[in-house]
Design a binder for these strands. Structure first.
Lengths: 347, 347
DNA sequence: CTGAAAGCGCTTACAG
DNA sequence: CTGAAAGCGCTTACAG
């Protein structure tokens, strides 16, 4: 009775900018300004609006925005030449979060030969006018791409960059710590002669993992031997070649740690071809916990890498203009996890 | 000069329902009716509107609809317990198409024990009120689920059902023909003693593939032997057991065709454990062309199954109310493709 | 079977 | 730094 305005009793009407404006004592236009991160809003006003939005549990209406603004919000996904499993995970993470934010995903895949395509990329980005760009490995460590993004003032978040500049928004995991921990696990099993297969020697992620490997050896006072570190290119074939190099050594390793699962799978294949048993004669560890890890024999001991979540968080940073926090969090390190399966055993 | 109405020259204004209405000579409300598939529209009117929409290349504005109607459009994804790779592909296909249609995806995963969960599923579906439901294997052949969907008049599309009722909307591929062709490939390589590893014997998809296998044998006048068909459960472990059963036969097969890639990977593992070479001593073929197929040694000869596309098409059927066609296409068979890699060779 | 009016929740200019 | 007005393209009742 007290409230005789329209609206059905019991049905909570959606909270709109107008409600937030009333609660904050400003016009709804000001609410719009704050929520869109526009300049020229007094700091105290901004605080009141954010506080009101939070206490009313205000949900932004993306449909209304895109109807009025006449253009869909877009997040661009810059992907390089990773494995199929990796790329699928990246797409999934982006799509999941974007659909929730009412944002569209546009995939810009850059081939290996960046130099040739950088102009096409620039044109496409300018045309698409994304509200943000997610840059995945190995592109996230490409100075030319970062420079391009900076030049045009695109907002962006890097996934798993090795050397992000100070303040550069990024989401990743601690590759070095993960590799160190995995190496320590092997050492704990009694292995002293541990081989490491990296990706391209100058691949950023790969070098972090190698660093972790070396530091675990140092921690255990095991001398690192150059011959025990060989290079692949992250694919299965190169992993096979690398494994053979290690197993052909005069003093071959009793355990091999590969910088990704595909190469680790190849190590197991190489062992079988030599009638070596895994883990009886050779322990094998991978990195990534991709789907291959659980469908090879024996199943692979590896590091779970939260790719879907990393990309998801990156999109959240890009799309989440309304954050309660005073300082927006734009750098995150997500937890990894060691997954011990059948491919590793005591020495 | 002739057109002095507002709007910037050169910038094509978006085509709206009003434009379509003018072109068709009806009110825009009628256009809305037609495009939403409402009843009570004269057939001739419907035709005119559809024709006008097509010739003007009208694009429906989802933002406007959800703003006005106050609720997001939702497609539900009913997924059972398939492999991780399969599920990821399903999600990807749905998300890709839904984002384009401005529709949200809600995932309803049903555990193996349907009976227990059917009520929860019903409640959730009623609450979500999706505009359509995509049902993936093995749920797509569950009579109880179909009955539930029919009872509440949900629109739905089945993915790869084995025995869809007449007129039941579904998207799939010809599993039987694919299996027949793969078996014929093995026969063409000189194999006569060919083992087959199915999933659960009563799994619908599995039985189609077995049928294809048997019919290829018949085509080649090769007598089928019961001992050469063994059952797994689609996972790696069961594939290993099944492979051992086949290889332990007095007259073991020279080739083994597994009903999915995971089990085929296990066959290769089983062969290595016996010091058999693949394909030298044993040819192995899989089904699916999932990511594992290219990261095992040797790489797997298999059947490419377009899961992402199948789900994508299913969503398109569910969301695409405006179809130019007079009769809406709700049944599709997508092409498969044999992928010959290193795991098969001459006998 | 078809139509005229109102309004969903925002952003876009424009004005102070 | 802040606000009042108009309108994006549809759907919802309601009326014929």
């Amino acid at each position: 009775m007290a409230d005789s305005k329209g609206g059905q009793a019991g049905v909570a009407a959606r909270t709109t900018m107008i409600d937030v404006a009333n609660a904050a004592g400003v016009s709804f236009k000001t609410v719009s300004r704050v929520l869109n991160g526009e300049a020229y809003v007094r700091e105290s006003t901004r605080g009141k609006v954010l506080e009101a939005a939070r206490s009313l549990d205000y949900q932004f209406n993306h449909a209304a925005r895109s109807l009025r603004s006449g253009s869909a919000q877009i997040v661009s996904l810059l992907t390089g030449n990773q494995s199929r499993a990796y790329t699928q995970s990246v797409h999934l993470g982006a799509l999941q979060q974007c659909q929730q934010a009412g944002v569209h995903v546009v995939v810009e895949s850059a081939a290996a030969d960046i130099e040739v395509n950088i102009e096409a990329l620039e044109r496409s980005l300018l045309e698409t006018a994304p509200m943000g760009v997610v840059v995945t490995p190995p592109l996230c460590d490409n100075a030319e791409i970062i420079a391009l993004l900076e030049r045009h003032h695109f907002r962006y978040v890097l996934i798993s960059p090795v050397a992000p500049g100070p303040g550069t928004p990024h989401v990743g995991m601690d590759d070095e710590a993960a590799a160190r921990e995995m190496t320590a696990l092997l050492i704990g099993l009694g292995h002293r002669q541990i081989g490491f297969i990296q990706g391209d020697p100058d691949d950023p992620a790969s070098s972090l993992r190698r660093r972790g490997y070396l530091s675990a050896l140092a921690d255990a006072h095991i001398a690192a031997e150059d011959t025990l570190v060989v290079s692949g290119r992250f694919d299965w074939d190169s992993g096979l070649v690398a494994a053979d190099r290690l197993l052909d050594l005069d003093d071959p390793p009793s355990a091999i740690f590969a910088a990704n699962d595909d190469m680790a799978a190849a190590v197991i294949a190489a062992a079988y071809r030599r009638d070596m048993r895994v883990p009886g004669d050779l322990s094998v560890a991978g990195f990534g916990d991709t789907s291959v890890a659980s469908v090879i024999s024996p199943q692979l001991t590896t590091v779970y890498q939260p790719i879907v979540d990393m990309v998801s968080e990156a999109v959240r940073i890009l799309t989440g203009v309304i954050s309660g926090a005073d300082v927006e969090v734009t750098q995150m390190t997500l937890p990894y996890r060691l997954v011990e399966r059948g491919s590793t055993g005591k020495c």
